[in-house]
Design a protein around this nucleic acid. Structure first.
Length: 599
RNA sequence: GGACCGGUAGCUCAGUUGGAUAGAGCAUCAGCCUUCUAAGCUGAGGGUCAUUGGUUCGAAUCCAAUCCGGUUCACCA
């Protein structure tokens, strides 16, 4: 990568002049040169000015001369502007890069990290369908898995399904009471939606029952406990835990409906999992680890027999791990699951894609595991993301204010269709092609919208304003890609021509600014990929790809490819746009976004 | 109250270990389709980087304090 080469060259130059000092590439700061100055990359001189007691301009001149003289294939000129050494990188360097890499499908992949990594994402409850907030989680997890694979890691995509507990019993009770045996088949409602409807029903009835009790003079707190539907749900949970046949079978049936529904959604979203965990299998785990912790003296018992860990020395609180009656809590279960995952796959790293409201929980989980001496503790990483909110505040499934994931997908596809037709671009496609195109545009826009911002920022989504298909969007990138493909069609070339399609000319014509801008960007791709992986941030790829598409559009407007000045230019430009399209496809495919050849 | 996260243009956001006059998109305004797709391109306006101090040759970035918003500190999951 070029910044690395520049740093190494700068170190060599410094070492040449100042033999008594030690320099490393980490001392050298290299940035892209600001557009208002001549040059491509800039070495900041100030750190050395102080260290070597030299005047900036003199030091810059000394280094600049040396660098240009001794690296003729890399630099053609230098310029010093108030403490900054601006280096012009030779066209030859960029053209060679292009000639070597335009065809390389592995450009951007590396082996900088070869860990075994699990990414747990999605992790839904089985009492309601997926909503817009889940989508952020799902896209993040899926994209991150792909990105980590690109940098050499072995990735296990995992889904931990929350399929048991009081909230699951709530929809079951409501279904039992009010559904008259309705099934997805009998109602033609997608299974997860059907179950979700009864979860909402439960809460409606629950509220009404409380109101009735309060009207009869009961205290509200007591009414919340005494409402018959709630008592039924609690009773059902006890029966489930006791293994009651009838309850168990209802539970299996309704969860089955939900899984069928999820399957459809996941498939449409284009995501998948290598390993499924179910809380009904894991909720009893962790107790044995807690017992060991007691023996070791890491944990302690209170008078009522409940088991705790004291984290006050770490600035946190005491945390309950087992109730007085010996039953476990959420944390206990998570401890068990963390160890289970570690044992299943011998993980180096275990990433949890979970909303930021669980920051404290995850911090405590990691801390407890490390105090218990569990080797899985070190690899735990919480990829925390901000919740998606509506202008009116948080989405609440109990209040029916959620934006449903399936509806959202439909809405996006509908918008894609509407826009395409409005722009008069729906001609020349078969019905099936159009359908595929609308899916690509609609879902691409949705994914890009949710991935383009830093995960930890919360986002507010206004369904009324919906999602723009202009500007910093997937559509913009898709459009640039389609334009490139259109040029290639005109030139009778496939999207990825044979390696021997072009001659490798020795550069004779200077690169135009718009050409150079694209090639400079392309050259940065491997570096960008590394950043995305180490920062665990798909948004890095969104930003990069958008900039690349922008650079292409600018170029496209200024220069012709078919009617290039000469054959050399034409072939160079073809290589350039082929590599641009390839890079855009590569980056976007990691985010699950497809790019059309025509739109 | 403790802990954590956020505050950058009217709105949504970039800004990689401190580097040049803080950048995009949307919105607004002005231009550009007899030439490879105008879902595009070019230009203009728009900023006390929440505030105040500190460190530094240099701070949106690091430190301290303060203000605003959010999350969390359950024998819920």
């Amino acid at each position: 990568m070029i910044t690395q080469l520049i740093k190494e060259a700068a170190v060599a130059a410094l070492q040449h002049f100042y033999t008594e000092q030690e320099f490393t590439v980490d001392n050298v700061s290299v940035n892209e040169t600001k557009p208002e100055f001549k040059g491509d990359y800039t070495v900041v001189l100030f750190p050395f000015v102080k260290m070597l007691r030299q005047k900036p301009d003199e030091l810059g001149k000394q280094l600049g001369e040396y660098l240009v003289q001794n690296n003729p294939s890399l630099f053609t000129a230098y310029q010093i502007v108030s403490g900054f050494l601006n280096l012009t990188v030779s066209d030859d360097f960029f053209v060679s890069m292009l000639q070597e890499s335009w065809h390389n499908e592995a450009f951007g992949t590396s082996k900088i990290s070869t860990k075994k990594v699990m990414i747990e994402y999605s992790s839904p409850n089985t009492n309601k369908p997926l909503h817009f907030g889940h989508l952020r989680n799902i896209f993040l997890g899926y994209a991150l898995g792909n990105i980590l694979k690109q940098t050499g890691n072995e990735v296990v995509k995992a889904n931990l399904i929350n399929d048991r507990g009081i909230h699951i019993c709530k929809s079951m009770v409501a279904w039992q009471r009010y559904a008259n045996g309705a099934t997805p088949e009998s109602t033609c409602i997608k299974g997860d939606h059907l179950v979700g409807d009864y979860y909402v029903k439960f809460n409606d009835v629950y509220k009404a029952e409380i109101a009735a009790l309060v009207a009869d003079g009961m205290e509200e707190k007591l009414a919340e406990k005494e409402a018959s539907i709630m008592k039924d749900a609690q009773q059902m949970l006890r029966q489930w835990e006791a293994g009651d046949q009838e309850v168990y079978s209802l539970w299996q049936t309704m969860n089955g409906w939900v899984y069928d529904g999820f399957e459809v959604s996941y498939k449409r979203l284009g995501v998948d999992f290598d390993k499924m965990y179910y809380e009904s299998n894991t909720y009893l785990l962790g107790k044995a680890i807690v017992e060991k912790g007691l023996e070791k003296g890491v944990l302690f018992k209170k008078e009522d027999n409940s088991v705790w860990i004291d984290l006050t020395a770490d600035g946190l609180d005491q945390k309950l791990l087992l109730r007085g009656d010996g039953t476990s809590v959420y944390m206990t279960q998570d401890i068990g699951t963390a160890v289970l995952k570690y044992d299943d796959f011998k993980l180096d790293q275990s990433v949890y894609v979970i909303a930021d409201e669980q920051n404290y929980h995850m911090q405590v989980l990691k801390l407890i595991l490390s105090k218990l001496g569990e080797p899985c503790a070190e690899g735990i990483f919480h990829l925390s993301y901000g919740m998606v909110e509506l202008p009116s505040g948080r989405m609440k499934s109990r209040e029916g204010t959620v934006v449903d994931a399936d509806d959202m997908m439909d809405e996006m596809v509908r918008m894609a269709q509407e826009q395409t037709e409005e722009n008069g671009k729906a001609d020349g496609f078969s019905a099936e092609e159009l359908n595929r195109l609308y899916q690509m545009i609609g879902l691409g826009a949705l994914k890009f919208y949710l991935l383009r911002v830093d995960p930890k920022k919360k986002m507010i989504f206004d369904p009324k304003e919906s999602i723009d298909l202009h500007g910093f969007t997937a559509t913009f990138i898709q459009y640039a890609h389609a334009r490139i493909c259109s040029i290639l069609r005109k030139e009778n070339l496939p999207v990825m021509p044979d390696e021997a399609s072009f001659q490798t000319y020795k550069t004779t014509l200077e690169l135009a600014k718009a050409e150079k801008d694209i090639i400079v960007k392309l050259e940065q791709y491997p570096c960008i990929m590394e950043t995305a992986a180490t920062e665990m941030s798909p948004s890095v790829l969104c930003n990069y790809t958008f900039q690349l598409a922008q650079a292409f559009n600018t170029f496209y407007d200024q220069h012709s490819i078919s009617k290039a000045e000469n054959e050399e230019k034409k072939q160079l430009r073809l290589m350039m746009i082929i590599m641009t399209a390839k890079t855009m496809r590569h980056a976007m495919s990691l985010l699950g976004i497809a790019l059309p050849e025509k739109m």
